[in-house]
């Protein structure tokens, strides 16, 4: 029973390789399905290392099972005394040198890639897009400094050029990770770190916080929406123009309530930055509420009524700054927020 099981376990790394090659996980979420040049470079390095490691595991596994089967204690051999071998210099040199060679094979591509993937300066020369990211417990703000546009939770990037993210944090250490586009870099308070990413094709890629940052670390999602260059320019223009005025009576009422109850932290208007809570200029265009909740009015009302029930540790007060918003008023605010769309 034992040998059968263990042989099965020896096969697992092979299965791992097969899975790696075929890719798995959901598209737009997984590091195993790289969708940009950075993630592809990283996946290549992963593959090289996996291949080397599979060789190692196979060699060790072969000797291991041979030894266990060949030299097991058999019945009637109780008095047998094996030869007491001290060692074997040749063998020992062999299994010192071979790993060194394997590691050199791995180190050779590792070093140049370490430098090239962290090189954000030459990326700038290629007229890369610069986006400032500031992380907060538990949401993300994105500012396009050249375009003077600020948004939150969903970041829009063009597909035709690399993007350099300049990361910082307003409170604790967070980490900015979009697995399908590339590895993560930490967002540290009081410092700016940089990360270069690029998307090959249009689509929405899931991003998340990867460094423990408090109660809702697990819910600190964001989205990277990659669009064509023309669409990106249009989006910037629309963001600057801002959303249309609300039409319905309820939404108009909601706007008033929003101004009284929410504006001390939130902002509507893409030029407004450095607020205590996410900028909501294009709220209605986003994919999720608070980064992870279904994007519908019902959920939004639940969220406004009691945010920390849905996202533990969220600092947003229940029922507005006053804490006194009625269900009806919350409904009106929700109506207003769903008019905040810039995409025509």
């Amino acid at each position: 029973m034992k040998r059968k099981w263990q042989r099965w376990f020896r096969l697992l790394p092979l299965a791992a390789l097969a899975l790696l090659l075929s890719g798995c996980g959901k598209e737009g979420v997984s590091a195993l399905e790289p969708l940009g040049p950075v993630a592809k470079d990283q996946a290549d390095l992963m593959l090289i290392s996996v291949l080397i490691m599979v060789v190692v595991v196979l060699v060790v596994g072969f000797i291991y099972f041979y030894v266990l089967i060949r030299f097991r204690k058999r019945k009637g051999q109780e008095d047998y005394i094996p030869k007491q071998v001290e060692g074997n210099t040749t063998l020992e040199i062999v299994w010192t040198v071979i790993p060194i060679v394997l590691l050199c094979i791995l180190a050779v591509p590792t070093v140049p890639k370490t430098f090239s993937l962290s090189d954000t300066h030459s990326a700038k020369k290629e007229s890369a897009l610069e986006i400032e990211v500031s992380a907060n417990q538990f949401w993300w703000q994105f500012t396009y400094p050249k375009q003077k546009v600020t948004t939150a939770q969903d970041v829009v990037i063009p597909t035709d050029r690399p993007v350099v993210f300049k990361l910082t944090s307003n409170d604790v250490i967070h980490s900015f990770w979009v697995p399908a586009l590339g590895g993560k870099v930490d967002a540290n308070p009081g410092q700016v770190t940089t990360l270069k990413l690029e998307a090959d094709k249009e689509g929405t890629y899931r991003g998340r916080c990867a460094e423990l940052c408090g109660s809702s670390h697990a819910l600190m999602y964001f989205n990277v929406k990659a669009v064509s260059s023309a669409e990106f320019d249009r989006w910037i223009k629309e963001m600057k123009a801002g959303p249309d005025q609300p039409a319905s009576a309820s939404a108009k009422q909601g706007e008033q309530l929003f101004k009284q109850n929410c504006m001390s932290c939130h902002a509507v208007g893409a030029s407004q930055t450095n607020k205590l809570a996410p900028n909501l200029t294009n709220f209605a265009d986003r994919k999720y509420i608070a980064g992870f909740l279904d994007h519908d009015k019902k959920t939004l009302e639940k969220w406004i009524a009691d945010p920390s029930a849905l996202k533990p540790g969220a600092t947003m007060p229940a029922r507005g700054a006053s804490g006194k918003l009625t269900d009806e008023q919350i409904k009106q605010i929700a109506d207003y927020l769903f008019t905040l769309s810039v995409e025509k």
């Binding site: 263990q6 376990f9 020896r10 790394p13 590091a31 993630a39 470079d41 990283q42 996946a43 390095l45 992963m46 290392s49 996996v50 080397i52 490691m53 190692v56 595991v57 060790v60 596994g61 291991y64 590691l103 791995l106 590792t110 890639k113 370490t114 993937l117 980490s175 990770w177 697995p179 590339g182 590895g183 993560k184 870099v185 990867a210 460094e211």
Partner: peptide, 25 residues
Amino acid sequence: IPTFVMGGVTGVMLAVPPADAQYHD
């Protein structure tokens, strides 16, 4: 022995900084 070999080889994989950017945390 085989368990530690597994842990060891993934350790070497983690030593590659660009790939570690994906594995880390």
